[in-house]
């Protein structure tokens, strides 16, 4: 009995320690956003200081945060919806109507994630130029959808695999067509899984910085471009950069906080099998 309490305590402490280590950079960034530029680079770093909003004021004066934030919301939600729209039927057919090539197709889809994006920058840039998609929200939505599609299909595939075939069969006996089967049986049964997949896709799109920096200029630029405009090799802008970063991650951090139960459930779903 005694030893199990000690064990529990040790595990709790360890979990707290790991959480602190992981969260510390974010905490430090939030703190730095409220410092002056001088305090931000002071050695030894100051933990207690008079907080100021001057970093935030300057950031707001230099760039239109709301415009960037709206673009981020539109692009990450749009790309996630589009990805789900394509991935649900794809994962359905792979989970319930597998062929000998299904496994290979799944692996091949994942292999597209192994290529560094810069390797296809030029062809994509030229395509986008000719299609008039440079600096457009629709272009970015398409790219993010393509970027997340392999992961979304994989995750949905594992969730769908857990649904007993008999349930779908029973539905079919009652006269449900494929569409009804998916809409009224499969989707409601796996809704938590679909939700966590969607959340992950939103987060990945929100944080993506390579394509958003390369394919947008001003009108479709999301928050990653907003942060990038404050990172500088010359001069001291740490407080402003931290303020801008805090503003950029705040919405997604809050969303993550609110939905952490679903997230954890979704992410550990396949692992326990």
């Amino acid at each position: 009995m005694h030893s199990s309490i000690t064990k529990k305590l040790a595990i709790t402490l360890l979990a707290w320690a790991i959480a602190l280590v992981v969260f510390f950079p974010i905490f430090w960034m939030i703190l730095t956003g409220f410092k002056t530029e001088g305090e931000a680079v002071a050695t030894p770093p100051s933990l207690f200081f008079e907080p100021t909003l001057s970093g935030y004021h300057e950031v707001m004066a230099r760039a239109d945060y709301v415009k960037f934030a709206i673009n981020s919301v539109v692009v990450s939600l749009g790309s996630t919806l589009l990805a789900l729209l394509i991935a649900v039927p794809a994962a359905y057919s792979m989970a319930f109507l597998p062929t000998p090539r299904t496994r290979g197709t799944l692996l091949w889809m994942l292999s597209t994630k192994m290529l560094p994006p810069v390797g296809v920058l030029m062809p994509i840039y030229l395509l986008f130029r000719d299609l008039g998609l440079l600096d457009s929200l629709s272009g970015l939505i398409v790219i993010y959808m393509l970027m997340n599609l392999p992961i979304v299909v994989w995750m949905l595939y594992t969730f769908f695999k857990d649904v007993p075939k008999d349930i779908l069969e029973a539905g079919r006996m009652d006269g449900a067509g494929t569409l009804q089967e998916v809409l009224y049986l499969l989707v409601p049964l796996t809704l938590p899984g679909i939700a966590s997949t969607g959340l992950l896709s939103v987060i990945l799109s929100w944080n993506e910085a390579f394509w958003s920096l390369n394919l947008t200029t001003s009108s479709a630029a999301p928050l990653t471009a907003f942060i990038a405009s404050f990172s500088s090799p010359e001069g001291l802008f740490w407080a402003k950069l931290s303020a801008a970063s805090t503003m950029a991650i705040a919405p997604i951090l809050i969303l993550g906080w609110m939905t952490q139960k679903q997230m954890v459930r979704g992410l550990t779903f396949g692992a326990v099998k």
């Binding site: 200029t217 001003s218 009108s219 471009a225 990038a228 405009s229 500088s232 090799p233 010359e234």
Partner: peptide
């Protein structure tokens, strides 16, 4: 319209 980025 401004696009402000780090040098590299």
């Amino acid at each position: 319209d401004w696009v402000v980025l780090e040098e590299n």
